[in-house]
Write a protein that binds this DNA or RNA. Structure first.
Lengths: 303, 303
DNA sequence: GGAACCTTTCAAAAAAACTGAATAGCCATG
DNA sequence: CATGGCTATTCAGTTTTTTTGAAAGGTTCC
């Protein structure tokens, strides 16, 4: 047994026959002569050992098996068409896959609708989301695990060779849970007062680079968590205190679950950035570079 | 532009080349001569207008576009193989789809693992689950909406022409919520006492047949619900009282959420049945007829 | 430098697909 | 019930596509 007798020509023939209603009409549509279709169909029927058409009546009627091959075959034909155009795309500079490293300061879910839109247009380009924290996000880019990263500035290593696109500014706010002792203080709170409570810190995911830490590190009590989401939840639960990015907690400030506290430590604003290998002209990379905006990331806050 | 230049032969060629590592080895595996592969590949490259192999080095290396076609092509080849064998199956008596009507007295989820097993074996045979209640389940079979039904006996219309397979016996228990006034009665409860409380009744889904009702109908107060699951939940919530099938409430009896009450009305045991059109020799039907057992339905209770 | 691979080219041969005319069946119409 | 118009199939011959094998040209490895 050599191999599968089902051919793409058969699938196209079945489709045309079903659409036009007869061998004759289908033949015309396919720029062939009816006997050519008979030949195509009979060949497969013989090789497969089953009937695709019921010839008892004089108008050929598809058998259930024929119908199955038609139905599934349409999907296969569609796949092959998509595949051909995707192959052309890739040959003309679209990457087969794009890996996006997202720093935990952003909500990866913000990118979902963007990725969905992209995938609609480019079904065979796989998009991978990878999570990182602080220097760890940069490390993804540096060690080749990601093609594009989304991070905050001030974290980039001194290394050359990376293109950086700055997006909107982000603000950090020092907040505590609504039940927290500091929540009631209306005046500026001193560092000593803050030192009474554990600080929640997001742990850098880097393996090789020097880990960075944001905010105070000279506090004695410190709880580290793997992601910004954990930090937010920990602070809401009252486990500790610390700065949180405004765009991630707007909702909780509005609802009152988190309360801002004035602190002496100046708020150092910083920027959301996109970064990628210099010289990477991939079109998928470019697409995301254009489409990832402050709005998409939820940074367009009126403060 | 006639049509897609990608052929199944190309996909098979790419697969072989990738597996064997060279045109020469692949050619051997495909019982061809190397130049035949060159021809196949070059033809598609020319028609598609892109390179599938990088010939700058001496050993041909697949381009990203070639790799994409290979990767997706493997899936397509697999699909076509499955399709061929499924078509043979259907031609030899397996139905393209099987519609199973399940009476609300059973938990449809009991069939899930069975359906999963079936689908593993017969990926192209679609299984539909349809819900019905009382005569409505029979109606599914009679009006051709279902090929196989799962019901309780005593509901079958007098009509001829249906094959019935009896499964295990099912018991009904009169139960009330744990907080219900009747829950504390340890002696037999009279009909008058029961009449104090609304009875929960599953409404027959039939459109054409004479609707049946199980249990008492001469009670004044009656709440009808669409499914057995609703009835169970209503009784747990204390909304009313009534008989419930033991196999659906074993768990709640054990946990004490439902409490059995002795009643004068005799418990009329009835049987789970499978029914289908006489003369239906479909193999999928047969498969389910064999595999749907008392155990699968959760009827194998030690009482 | 030579042996052992590899891929490609090319003309010829083989195989497959297609054609057109003839055949035969059904069905609606008059 | 005959006829014309539709259908699909058969078959022999033709065209197109695919395959072949020998020759040529490269790379790698020893």
């Amino acid at each position: 047994m050599a191999h599968n007798p089902i051919t793409l020509d058969l699938l196209r023939a079945l489709d045309a026959i079903d659409q036009r209603g007869s061998f004759a009409a289908a033949a015309t549509a396919l720029h062939k002569v009816p006997s050519a279709l008979t030949y195509t169909v009979q060949k497969v029927e013989q090789d497969l050992g089953i009937d695709l058409f019921d010839r008892s009546g004089h108008r050929a009627k598809m058998t259930p098996a024929g119908r199955l091959i038609l139905d599934e075959g349409r999907g296969i034909l569609r796949d092959i068409d998509t595949l051909a155009s995707s192959a052309k795309k890739i040959a003309s500079g679209w990457e087969p896959e794009l890996r996006i490293g997202v720093d935990t300061i952003f909500e990866p879910s913000r990118l979902f609708s963007l990725i969905q839109a992209f995938n609609q247009e480019h079904p065979y380009i796989k998009v991978h989301l990878i999570h990182g924290a602080l220097s760890g996000t940069w490390e993804l880019l540096i060690n080749g695990s990601a093609d594009l990263i989304l991070s905050g500035d001030g974290l980039d290593p001194k290394a050359e060779g990376y293109e950086i696109k700055r997006l909107a500014e982000m603000k950090r706010v020092f907040v505590v849970s609504k039940d927290h002792p500091l929540a009631s203080k209306s005046c500026t709170v001193s560092e000593e007062e803050i030192a009474e409570y554990p600080t929640i810190v997001v742990k850098d995911t880097t393996q090789l680079l020097a880990p960075k830490t944001v905010g105070w590190t000279r506090h004695h009590r410190m709880v580290t968590v793997p992601t910004m989401q954990d930090k937010i939840e920990a602070q809401i639960a009252g486990l500790g205190v610390g700065f949180l990015p405004l765009h991630r907690i707007k909702h909780y400030l509005d609802s009152g679950d988190l309360v801002p506290v004035k602190v002496s430590q100046p708020d150092e604003p910083f920027k959301a950035i996109l970064a990628y290998q210099k010289g990477n002209t991939g079109k998928a990379l470019n697409w995301f570079r254009e489409h990832i905006t402050a709005e998409v990331l939820g940074l367009d806050l009126q403060v």
